[in-house]
Design a protein around this nucleic acid. Sequence first.
DNA 1: GCACGTCAAGAGCACCGCTCTCGTCATGCG
DNA 2: CGCATGACGAGAGCGGTGCTCTTGACGTGC
Lengths: 251, 251
Amino acid sequence: MRSALSVVCHALDMSVVKDARARARAEVVVAIKATAAQHLAQTGAAGLSLRAVARDLGLVSSALYRYFPSRDALLTALIVDAYDAVGEVAERADAAALAAGADPGARWLEVCRAVRGWARASPHEYALVYGTPVPGYSAPHDTVEAAVRLSRVMAAVVTAAAADGSLRPPQRPLPGPTLVTDAVAAVAGGAPPPPYEDLLERSLVLLTALIGTTSYLQFGHLHLALVDDDAWFDRAMAVAAEGVGLVLPLD
Amino acid sequence: MRSALSVVCHALDMSVVKDARARARAEVVVAIKATAAQHLAQTGAAGLSLRAVARDLGLVSSALYRYFPSRDALLTALIVDAYDAVGEVAERADAAALAAGADPGARWLEVCRAVRGWARASPHEYALVYGTPVPGYSAPHDTVEAAVRLSRVMAAVVTAAAADGSLRPPQRPLPGPTLVTDAVAAVAGGAPPPPYEDLLERSLVLLTALIGTTSYLQFGHLHLALVDDDAWFDRAMAVAAEGVGLVLPLD
DNA sequence: GCACGTCAAGAGCACCGCTCTCGTCATGCG
DNA sequence: CGCATGACGAGAGCGGTGCTCTTGACGTGC
């Protein structure tokens, strides 16, 4: 009877109920990731030590290899979580702005501020996601879904601006054929109509400006150059948004 | 007599002729930096091992500590050199474009391409300079002079555009007081005159766009998004340049 | 009730950054 | 000119790392 139930679980609910063994294993995995995330937040990716994580868990280092085949695998798992975190932050910021009746420009400014706020609150996680790639980093395949969440938010904002007529057409359209892949068009919901033929290329510039500016500030390259980082960041985002025709509210 | 000569050397030419000891020491220092740079280019900053460098030099690891007090100090020396390298690349590209009679827009495009070309040729050095900061990184004081070289090139291009009238004034000037420090104004050669009051803020956006876009491409975040990285990079720089009123040549 | 698979523990390997000590050699001073 | 000082390289060693392998205990499924 128990075995029959077990079979039923396997057939219907495998991913939810699972084996008792598998569930215990999953719990250990999340415990490892949790303490590893704590260490990451404190010491950074370079200082994350598998042995130290094991010590905190009351385990011996070799026991961790039952759950993660290598330190890089653990780090990759943390990267995926961090990607997801920034994606969720962006989505929530946009949803909140949308609920407050903000126009597309105001929505995007809130998204930018939220991403930068997350970067400042979690500098090491941010560096893991958008800084120098770690040498043994497995594959973008795990992260591509999580990474696309931010792009989707931007696509929604730009599409809304195009729909309500507030998106200004480019003064000087970019020459040549489209330069983005079909995957980008799929995320954006198809090729943009005239007069926005170069909108996808310009949208990637907008996304790059958000991450690039956040990184440049986060990594201290403008430390001696600015008297008010926050105000300049808002204006930098406004200048970048002009490139796609989006008008951000300032003051 | 020898001692008298030595005194003369000390008084007049100390930094050029030096002691025999000091010169030998300087040679060893450059040898260490050279092989360390090789290792850096191959394995990246994380994989740079003091012991491996010492082995390549036929030394024992402890001997290196006579020249660099720690691994981070050696890494910092490499960072300074890398900053200088990218600054020189930018300066040479601008000088070549200027000699070829290029207008400011064309000059800046060449500078952008040159910086990105250096990043692709020296990815680990680029990551060291513009990627995640290394934890034990000493001080920006050593690098600030080298880092300002690129800014100076940009300032020269933008100033030339303002001087020859090709710089378009902003359609929507940035509100509020100036956000940059006096150091930035000093590099730019003073506060910009009307109608370019926000030029320094916008110029920092331009610089950030160059580095941010190069990093975003270099770190693979647009790997699945673009069919022609080079063409998109040119257009991204053109879109960013629109933000300061600089017109880049495309096609 | 027994065998199997899973798990944690421990020892061990190679490598790392870094410190300390100890000969050696050239240098500069009296 | 002779000697003491100081710089230098070699080597051993410490604590740490990632990772592998073996061993023994435990709970589960047949």
